[in-house]
Amino acid sequence: MRVVMFGYQTWGHRTLRALLESAHDVALVVTHPQSDHAYEKIWSDSVAGLAEEHGVPVVLRDRPDDDLLLTLKEVQPDLIVANNWRTWIPPEFITLPRHGILNVHDSLLPAYAGFSPLIWALINGEQEVGVTAHMMNDELDAGDIVVQRAVPVGPADTATDLFHRTVDLIAPIVAESLDLIASGRTDWTPQDRSKASFFHKRSIEDGNIDWTWPAEDIERLVRAQSDPYPNAFTHYKGERVRVLKASVSQGVYGGTPGRVFIREGDGIVIVAGAEARRGRSHGLVIERVRTEDGTDLPAGDLFRTMGGYLTARP
């Protein structure tokens, strides 16, 4: 088959590498210009660089336009393969290749369509995550499923752990999907849209800790915002503090959410949960923090005395 690839960052890079290693002809690569967005500067292997190394023409676009459509008509692809393409692809692009567009998405669709699915899934306590290859239609991440693979989420896993585990699924999923499409198969599995969910891009503000959340949820937020992602953060005495490591307290504590309360184990308990005033909630034990100047230190070195509050704003 004659294939065009739409993709960006490491997800797109892994997809392109799988295409280049296949028996199919990669005729063109379309990728986004480099971005300063905090979440787009990490996992940023260059799709354009890999294409150029292999002599594949590259087109840079923020979004598909009429000029790109004309280029694709000249290339005449049998299939477009997309991964981590960040903007809407119009219907006329989807219907142009005779096999349509195969999109590769890092969630177990129909759940977690949209952006940052691994982070959202970890925050929400999902027991597994994965990668889905599906045929694109005019609704984002909603097309029929070609191949889907899952991996379990462990109790200490970070978003970084899950990234490495799922990105390794891309190459075999792409290879299997290409074989199925080339064989003439079209009996794909429709998504159960009653189980669909759709999430927005994450920004720095999404890591701002809400101390009315249960401690279990905040602990997952901390793991979801692991390095190199922008860390979960709060404010203490007017300064931003990033939380690098935390756990749910053994004890049950009462009071006002955000209160710097008591030492437990290797950390400092912060009162958490909307029902904390009833004295029936576990707190969050902060164990390691990063200050605004980039210094990492044990929480006890920052919270030297008990009392005071952690807040959403300085």
Rank of each mutant, 00 (worst) to 15 (best):
V131K: 01
E53C: 13
R98Q: 09
R86M: 12
E74F: 07
E92C: 14
G55P: 14
E53Y: 05
G114E: 09
E128D: 05
P77M: 13
P117T: 07
V47G: 03
S46A: 07
R63H: 00
L60G: 08
D36V: 06
T71S: 14
N103T: 08
D78Y: 08
H32Q: 00
D62K: 11
P90Y: 04
A48S: 15
D65N: 15
H54Y: 04
I119Y: 02
A82N: 10
F93S: 12
V30Y: 01
I89R: 09
G49F: 10
Q34E: 08
R98M: 04
V56F: 14
D45A: 11
E92I: 05
Q127A: 07
L109R: 03
V59Y: 00
W43S: 04
L122R: 07
H99K: 13
R86L: 13
S35E: 03
P33Y: 00
L102V: 02
H105C: 00
L108K: 04
R61A: 02
V81G: 12
L79C: 15
V58P: 13
P91S: 05
P64N: 08
D66H: 15
I80R: 13
N124D: 14
E53F: 06
A51L: 07
P64T: 02
Q127R: 11
R86V: 11
A51M: 09
P110M: 02
I94H: 09
E53N: 07
V104T: 09
V29T: 11
D106E: 10
N124L: 10
A82H: 13
L122K: 06
L60R: 11
Q76S: 08
Y39C: 01
H54M: 04
G114Y: 11
D45K: 08
K73I: 06
E92A: 14
V59M: 07
D36S: 12
L102Y: 01
I42G: 06
E53M: 12
